[in-house]
């Protein structure tokens, strides 16, 4: 359980990289209360565990408060990463951004589960949700379960979701330049998560890249 109170005008970024054993059930509550002109940023990277259910949330309670979640999940054989975020707009002119990227391979499963709730008094609020999923093989699976509860008409809400498969053509292109199949897949995956990795503090970024490489090792039969 993580609870954060962001006072007026403050900014908090909370970064988590988890790589639990593949037997662990990882059920976590993370929530933040954000006051006037405050900003909360969750960066949340989930690699390990058998099942993760985690939806970092922010209550945008003060006027002009901002919340952002950058979520990355990777699921391999026997894993289910059920992750997402909750944005609860309680005050006028509040802004939320949720970016979720997931990679499924070897029959692994990822889900995006999200809530955007905009209360009647949250006039002029904005919310943007982007979920991108990458599937490395036909056995893997990805689902999106967005909930949007909008009780105010003066708001802007955007939701985008994409699912892509690692393309035979992309692999062939990279392999024709000398990269073997594993190196080529790694390159495609690291390119896919790069926009999120870029937002991490450097030490974490390096660690994440190494973890992804490790997870991808031997993923190509």
């Amino acid at each position: 359980m993580v609870e954060i109170f962001v006072k007026k005008g403050a900014r908090v970024q909370y970064t988590t990289v988890q790589n639990w054993y593949k037997t662990v059930y990882n059920l976590v509550t993370k929530r933040a209360w954000v006051e006037e002109e405050g900003e909360m940023v969750w960066t949340d990277f989930n690699m390990g565990s058998k099942l993760t259910m985690k939806y970092p949330s922010f209550f945008l309670a003060g006027k002009g408060a901002r919340g952002e979640t950058l979520s990355m999940a990777m699921a391999g054989a026997g894993q289910h990463q059920d992750t997402g975020s909750k944005a609860i707009h309680l005050a006028p002119h509040t802004t939320s951004t949720i970016v979720s990227k997931s990679v499924s391979r070897g029959g692994g499963r990822t889900s995006y589960r999200g809530l955007v709730s905009i209360s009647p008094q949250a006039r002029g609020s904005k919310s943007k949700v982007v979920c991108d999923a990458l599937l490395l093989d036909p056995e893997s699976r990805s689902d999106t379960y967005p909930t949007n509860r909008i009780l105010c008409s003066d708001v802007s809400l955007a939701h985008e979701a994409t699912v892509s498969k690692i393309g035979e053509e992309q692999l062939f292109y990279l392999m024709s330049r000398g990269l073997n199949e594993e190196a080529a897949s790694k390159m495609i995956v690291s390119g896919f998560v790069e926009p999120l990795i870029k937002k991490l503090p450097l030490e974490y970024a390096i660690e994440m890249n190494r973890l992804i490489d490790l997870e991808m090792e031997g993923s190509v039969g």
Partner: peptide, 23 residues
Amino acid sequence: TPDERARAGLFLAFQYPVSIEGI
């Protein structure tokens, strides 16, 4: 495999080069 062919010294300039995000 294609990568082994590349390492043997073969190159293909694609008619429709493929794009890869983030790299």
